[in-house]
Design a binder for these strands. Sequence first.
DNA 1: AAAAAAC
Length: 622
Amino acid sequence: MNKRTSWADLAANSAAENTYAGSSVNNGILGTTSGGASRTNTYVPPHLRNRPASSDPPAPAYSGPASSNDRSAYGGARWGGARNDSRSGYGGSGGGGGRTGGWGGGRGGGWDRGREQEVNPFGDDDNTEQAFSEQANSGINFDAYEDIPVETSGDNIPPPVNIFAEIDLGEALNLNIHRCKYVKPTPVQRHAIPISLAGRDLMACAQTGSGKTAAFCFPIINGIMEMQAQGVQRPSRGARTVYPLALILSPTRELSMQIHEEAKKFSYQTGVKVVVAYGGAPINQQLRELERGVDILVATPGRLVDLLERARVSLQMVKYLALDEADRMLDMGFEPQIRKIVEQMDMPLPGFRQTMLFSATFPKEIQRLASDFLYNYIFLAVGRVGSSTDLIVQRVEFVYDSDKRSHLMDLLHAQRANGVHGKQALTLVFVETKKGADSLEHWLCVNGFPATSIHGDRSQQEREQALRSFKSGNTPILVATDVAARGLDIPHVAHVVNFDLPNDIDDYVHRIGRTGRAGKTGLATAFFNESNVSLARALADLMQESNQEVPAWLSRYAARSSYGGGRNRRPGGNRFGGRDFRRDSSYTRGGMDYYGGNSTSGYGASGGYGGGYGPGVTSAWD
DNA sequence: AAAAAAC
């Protein structure tokens, strides 16, 4: 099938789909002004939908850092001093001077030379049609994503698109999208990409496995291509310092590697250079890669701080900042490092860069912290509570600690009997501690189960080897700590076992999200005992909302447990993956009204469960 | 209390 045909088909499909788009985004439930003037009740033919309301020319090209980059009527104030915001501290810094300094003519440094050597990340030089046919990227079950609720809030929200062709991402990027077999944007992509292209900051809450990486990569790559077409030039002082235009941070090394791999595919032959930097690996090779030129830097925080302190990287030219798993990046362990990178180095201030935060979960107190990094942002929540849980069958079994191993063995035996394609289905087993991971792995191997493990005490080489071996099916059982809980896209994980349950329901959501990816189904089994009572209620609520069978004994634990102080709460009634904390009645923002003043049906401050909870409610699921 | 993240 050639591109023309498939896009034509998509256009036809999307016309039908538009009913859904209109109702979910624009109905009164949300109580938000979405979509601006074009979102009215009047019928608009499909080919005219989602256009800027005015008669402005469509999607002007990048016009330089000192001028407006608005793709439509929906952009806010942009980089380079266009903002008319009155907060202090924004005097002339961060590009307010416009076309002075480093923004002359000429090309970005160094990459043209290396460009000829660019490795084809599709692993198939001549036949792009066949590339990826066996990969997880193909065959996304989009039907599973239909009818997903979407909540947007914020000021002047760009309308979603229905097909990639509706957005001008450029020929090279479109070709890569085609090569990746992405035929139709996922819900988060439909909404997030127009928001990003309009230059807006974004806080996005979307299901695990729903295509978040592409959602922030496409606009970044597109934006950098336009900057390069305009002849962006980086400072030349400090010969060994490099100046990335985009920074993507993630909480684990393997996730950074994965994002790097994805971003390389998306940016193939676009002239946009992606480099990854993370700890546990020799820094010299990473330094050499950086010296060959970098537009998008993907990194874990520790290694990046190291590079910044060595002055090998400067963030002065960063125009795009993306935090993947943003709630994790801002939790207690990470927040100081992230603040240092974002606020205490030479990164442009909010409003002078574009900031995008993505996660499947977004507790409210984390949203509050995150808002420091954002300028007049749009909040986007896509999908049901509990991520892709309609696609994941969740089971909870009462298992004493002393019985866990034999119980796991029973599960694995049963699965082996069901083995598909002669190979054992991939099973990911989460445990609480690194020692626990080692000993369970050893025990499984001794008992004839091909297992490996991944956790923070293993060398980076061992970690990467373990992941490869698991993915390939060589060792179809992977025992893991929470290092593997978030973001990792491992195709064909049929079963996630919570051998030890986490203490936080959000961690549970991320863990089970390792299966049921890309619209496929999956199974998640949890071993529950007295040491997990604090999770009982949140777990029961989550399961109930995702139409799972809740064992009566679990409901009894749930009824008994009180919600005093923990953050494991998440009342029912909210079909969305999260809520904008700015809509809380407790949160007042000094007179700014982001929401058009109307908040309706079911999303009022009192909520369905309002009375049942004490002060200090913290989860975005509220 | 544990996990992750630099050397």
